[in-house]
Write a protein that binds this DNA or RNA. Structure first.
Lengths: 353, 353
DNA sequence: ATGGTGTTCTTTATCGTTACAGAGAACAAG
DNA sequence: CTTGTTCTCTGTAACGATAAAGAACACCAT
C-alpha cells in the first residue's frame, strides 16, 4: 500500500494531474464543481494533501530557517542569553509563518557538520560568526546572519550580521575599572572548543598567540577580549580560559582566582553567566563582590540586575528580531547592523581600597 | 547566474550525472582519479554539494523531526517543563544525528496549522495529544508521539504516546488531601485555548459540562483533573480556570482565592508552575503555604523541591527521551508507554487545623 | 580461445509536484 | 459569420538528485 499521489487521483478520475494540483492550490483554475469532486475523491482515497518535499523542490523554497548552536541543544535551552535571543527570533519567524530548525554543531564534531549540508532551509542564523556551522553555511552559499563578531575577519566575510561593537564595549569596561583604580585584573573567557586549555593563567600576549595559532577557532569573544586587554594595557592582566560559557564554569574559576594569597582586585568575565557563577563562588567563601573583589560581566541579563552585577548591556532581543528579519527579507538594504550597547555600573564594582 | 547542479558539472566534464553524484556519495563506484577531478571541478564551478531537498525527495526521508507546541515558542522556552522535555528529546535526536524543527500552532490559529502540512519531517512529537497540530499530523498519516493524554479519547486514537497515568495521579493527590482532613478545595486548571472563560469559579459538574461542550479542546489536563475531582468527591470542590499555564497565571489566581473571607483550606494546581505562582501570591500576602493554606502541584520540577511544594513527580526527561526514540525507530514494539509517577509530600501540604 | 570476475562508467526511470504554454469550447461583440 | 475573449482543462517539461541495471573493457584462470 504505497502512498497516494496526485497522479493516482488523476488516473482514477480521468483528469490531468495538473487539475488535481490546481484543485488544491489554485481554485480559480478549474470549475468549482470539478474542484469539489476532486477534493472529495482525494479524501476518499486517503490523499493527505500535496507533499511538502516535492513542493519544496519545485519552488526552491522551504520557508524554514535554521538556527545553529555550537553546543548541545540542552545548553541552548538553559543559557539565558540564548533563550532570550531565540525567543525574539522565533517571535518574528512565527509572525511570518516560517518554521525554525535547530541545528547543533558542537565544535570539533565533524560529523555533525553534515547537518548543515543536509538542512533543507532558506537561511541560517547563529549566535557566533566563526562557528564551523556558519562557515560551512556560507560556503554553501546559504544566506546567513550571525549575532556576534568573534574576530575581525568575520566582519570582512560574506555573511550578514547584527552585532554590537564588542571591541568598544571591552574598552569601556576596561576604562571603568581603570577609573576605579584597579591594577590587577583577571579576565575569565570561554573556550567552548574541545581539547583547549582550561583553567590555566595566561599573560595576554601568550593567550593572543594561542588564539592566533587556532585561527580564531579557539573561542567566540575575541573582539570583546581584545578591547578589554587593550583598555587595560599597562596593568597586570591575567587571562583564564574557563571552558564552556556557564554559571558552573564561572563558579569553578573561583577556585583558581579566589583561593590564593595574591587575589586580583577585579575580575571581568566576558559573559554575565560566568560572572554570576563567579559571584556564587564569592558568596560560598563569604566574600562580597565590590568590597572584597570587584566583578563585572557582559550581556546585561535580568539576573545581573538582581545580583547587582556591573555589566555591558546589549540588546539581545533586537539581535534576535533583526536576525530573523534579515533572513526573511533578503531585500532589506542594511544587512550589517551594529547596535548600541551600554555600560551599567552596579555595586559589584567599586573603587580599590 | 543560476545555481550550479550536478548536471552542469557532468556536461562540462563530459561524464554522466551519475558519476558526479557518485563522486559525492559513493566513492567506491568510480576511480579515485576521476573522483578527485570531479570534486575539484565541482569546487571550481562553485558547486556546494548535493541539494538537500532533491535528495530528500528521492529518498523520501528528511531525517528531521518536528516538535509541535500549542503556544508561542517563547512560551516553550520559558516553561520549565517544556524546556526539560525538549532538552531530553533533543539529546536523543542529536545522538542520532537527526534535526529538530519547531512548530508553533497556537490554538485557534487556523493558518498556523498549515505549517504541519508544509513541514518536511519524518515525524512529529508534542506535549499534548489533543492539540490541533497533532490531530492534523495524524490525519496526514505522519508518525506521531505525544506525552500527555488529555482525554480518554486520545488513548484510543492512532498515535503513539509516552505518558503517565494522570487519572491515577489525580486520585492519589486527592487521597493525600483527604487524609489531611481538607474539606474545602480549590483546583486551578489551565485553559490554554483562546476565548475560554478565565478566573471564574465552577462546580465540578458545571466545568465538566463546559469541557464536554468544547469536545475536549478546552484544556489539556482533563484526565488529571478528572482524577482529582473523582478523588475529592463528597468534599466542597471549586474549579478555577486560570488561562495559560504559567507562574503569572497562578499568581493571579491568588487574588481570586486568597482575598476572600471563606478561603479554601487547600489549593491544587494541575501544574507546578501554577502552584509556584500561587505560592508567590501567598508570600505577597504574608501567608504561609501549609499553615495558612495547603498548596500542591503536579510535575515535580526542581523549583518545586526548593519551594517545599507537595507535588506529583513525573519523569519528564524519560518522556522526552522515549518520545524521540519512538520517532527514530518505528520498529520498536512498545509504542504506548505509561511511565510511573510519584506523590512527593513536602511542607506545603499539612493537616487541617 | 573461453568464460568468469571485477572495475568503471552510463542509461533509464523515478521521487511528487507545479510552471508554462497551449487547446478546445462557449460566448459576446462587431 | 467572423473575430476575439474568457473559461476549463491538458500535456510537457522541469526541480536536482539517486537506485538499479546495463555496457564496455581489462584481467585472470582454465
Amino acid at each position: 500500500m504505497a502512498r497516494v499521489t496526485q497522479q493516482d487521483i488523476a488516473k482514477v478520475m480521468g483528469v490531468s494531474v495538473m487539475t488535481v494540483s490546481n484543485a488544491f492550490n489554485r481554485p480559480d483554475q478549474l470549475s468549482p464543481d470539478l474542484r469539489t469532486r476532486v477534493l472529495e475523491r482525494a479524501a476518499k482515497m486517503g490523499y493527505t494533501g500535496p507533499d511538502a518535499i516535492a513542493r519544496q523542490l519545485r519552488s526552491g523554497r522551504t520557508n524554514t530557517f535554521a538556527v545553529a548552536f555550537e553546543e548541545k541543544l540542552s545548553y541552548a535551552f538553559s543559557d539565558p542569553f540564548s533563550v532570550a535571543w531565540l525567543a525574539a527570533f522565533s517571535e518574528v519567524m512565527e509572525k511570518h509563518r516560517a518554521s525554525i530548525m535547530l541545528l547543533s554543531v558542537p565544535a570539533g564534531d565533524h560529523e555533525a557538520l553534515a547537518a548543515v549540508q543536509d538542512a533543507a532551509v532558506d537561511g541560517i542564523a547563529g549566535l557566533c560568526g566563526n562557528q564551523p556551522a556558519m562557515i560551512r553555511a556560507r560556503e554553501r552559499g546559504m544566506p546567513t546572519v550571525y549575532c556576534t563578531l568573534a574576530t575581525r575577519e568575520d566582519a570582512e566575510g560574506t555573511g550578514d550580521y547584527v552585532v554590537i561593537d564588542d571591541h568598544a564595549a571591552g574598552l569601556e569596561m576596561a576604562g571603568h575599572l581603570r577609573r576605579l583604580g584597579h591594577e590587577r585584573v583577571f579576565l575569565l573567557v570561554e573556550t567552548p572548543y574541545r581539547g583547549q586549555p582550561r583553567m590555566v593563567e595566561y599573560r595576554p600576549e601568550d593567550f593572543r598567540a594561542l588564539v592566533d595559532a587556532h585561527a580564531g577557532y579557539l573561542f567566540s569573544d575575541d573582539l570583546r577580549l581584545a578591547g578589554l586587554v587593550e583598555g587595560l594595557h599597562g596593568l597586570e592582566v591575567t587571562i583564564v580560559p574557563v571552558g564552556t560559557n556557564s554559571r558552573a564554569a564561572g563558579n569553578a574559576a573561583g577556585t583558581l582566582v579566589l583561593d590564593r594569597t595574591d587575589r586580583p582586585s577585579a575580575v571581568v568575565a566576558v559573559s554575565d553567566v560566568m560572572a554570576l557563577g563567579f559571584m556564587d563562588a564569592c558568596a560560598q567563601r563569604g566574600l562580597e563582590p565590590g568590597l572584597d573583589v570587584s566583578v563585572a560581566g557582559f550581556d546585561g541579563l535580568p539576573e545581573a540586575a538582581d545580583a547587582g552585577l556591573t555589566t555591558i548591556r546589549q540588546p539581545v532581543r533586537d539581535k534576535g528580531r533583526l536576525a530573523a528579519e534579515l533572513l526573511l527579507d533578503p531585500s532589506l538594504p542594511d544587512r550589517r547592523i551594529i547596535l548600541p550597547h551600554e555600560l551599567i555600573v552596579r555595586r559589584s564594582t567599586r573603587p580599590v581600597g
